[in-house]
């Protein structure tokens, strides 16, 4: 297990190296000169040259890339072209918001998805099942930005129950939780719908299996049959879906952060791309990739805990 984690971490380093190279190169190939953006429309050619000199932009690209990697190894991600803020610092201030948003959305998705899926499976073809499968169908088809806008309109503007935007308060305060409600639902609904569908079909499959009949034949109580014998098996494919969805959900933070004006990594990345802020773009992309890989590693570890048939020896 330990060696598996070490191996995966090694793979992560290689992956990040590859991603950093691709991002670095594509930023340089893409049109748009950072020096003109930093210098502004009035800058003279000599000023621009000075800026390029200062940032090392006139060195060969490969040299720039190697310099960049050297910096990263020392924990130095460079400075933002837009406001000279250290990139590490900018990320450190934004990251908590994105993590708050992603984690709370995933929790919402898992709780709602599992409950809806289980109820559906237990009461197959009842009105509860029909309601929940309809919700699941609609849930995956609604675009994030539209759902967000509608939720704001109804619950923030009209009913005024919840704030319109922001995520500035600590999550453990009442105001912080109120701020989280609408963004989490916006971002979590699609995942909830997918988890609901998956857990319903997985549970229906499992309750038909031979070992469930064996459990009944032993005299195991109905509740134990469902919540112990069946659930643990039904969760195995659901965990895969949760893992895959976390990636999609991370991507979704970009839109959700825009809709709710949340100062997170997603907005930071979008703004940086628009401004040709190379160091910022590279660092945010690397960060999101790392989070994605680490989530997948965690999912794989949970797998081993749930399904004894899987081992990584």
């Amino acid at each position: 297990m330990i060696s598996f984690i070490i191996r995966r971490m090694g793979q992560l380093v290689l992956l990040l190296l590859g991603i950093s190279f691709i991002v670095f190169m594509s930023m340089h190939i893409a049109p748009g000169d950072p020096a003109t953006i930093i210098g502004g429309p009035t800058a003279k050619e000599s000023d621009l040259e000075a800026i390029r000199e200062d940032l090392g932009l006139n060195k060969p690209v490969f040299v720039q890339y190697v310099d960049y990697l050297k910096g990263i190894l020392q924990g130095d991600f460079g400075y933002s072209y837009q406001n000279s803020q250290p990139v590490g610092e900018a990320i450190a201030t934004r990251l908590p918001n994105t993590i708050k948003l992603a984690v709370s959305s995933m929790i919402v998705a898992i709780i709602i998805g599992l409950i809806a899926g289980m109820i559906s499976a237990m009461k197959q073809n009842s009105w509860l099942d029909v309601t929940s499968t309809t919700f699941a169908l609609v849930g995956v088809s609604i675009p994030n930005f539209w759902l967000g806008a509608m939720l704001i309109l109804v619950f923030a503007v009209n009913l005024q129950w919840l704030p319109v935007s922001g995520l500035s308060e600590p999550f453990y305060t009442m105001d912080g939780m109120k701020q989280l409600v609408l963004p989490s639902i916006t971002l979590g609904t699609a995942s909830a719908a997918i988890i609901a569908r998956m857990s319903r079909s997985s549970m229906l499959e499992v309750v038909k299996s031979d070992y469930i009949r064996t459990a009944k034949a032993k005299g195991v109580k109905h509740k134990t049959v469902i919540w112990v014998h069946a659930l643990r098996n039904a969760l195995i494919p659901v965990i895969t879906v949760v893992g895959i969805n976390f990636g999609a959900l991370l991507g979704g933070t970009i839109i959700t952060e825009q809709v709710f004006a949340i100062n997170g990594i997603g907005r930071l990345m979008i703004d940086a791309i628009a401004a040709r802020d190379f160091p910022m773009v590279q660092a945010t992309v690397l960060l999101v990739a790392s989070i994605f890989v680490i989530i997948n590693l965690i999912v794989d570890i949970i797998y081993v805990k749930v399904d004894p048939r899987i081992s990584y020896e």
């Binding site: 299996s209 031979d210 070992y211 009949r213 064996t214 459990a215 009944k216 034949a217 032993k218 005299g219 195991v220 109580k221 109905h222 014998h229 643990r232 098996n233 749930v306 399904d307 004894p308 048939r309």
Partner: peptide
């Protein structure tokens, strides 16, 4: 339920699938 596995027990055909894979 109180009789099953207690006074009457049953063994099934498929040993490969009749045991729960996630429990010892």
């Amino acid at each position: 339920r109180k009789i099953r596995g207690n006074e009457i027990s049953m063994i099934f055909q498929e040993p490969m699938t009749a045991l729960n894979p996630v429990f010892t």
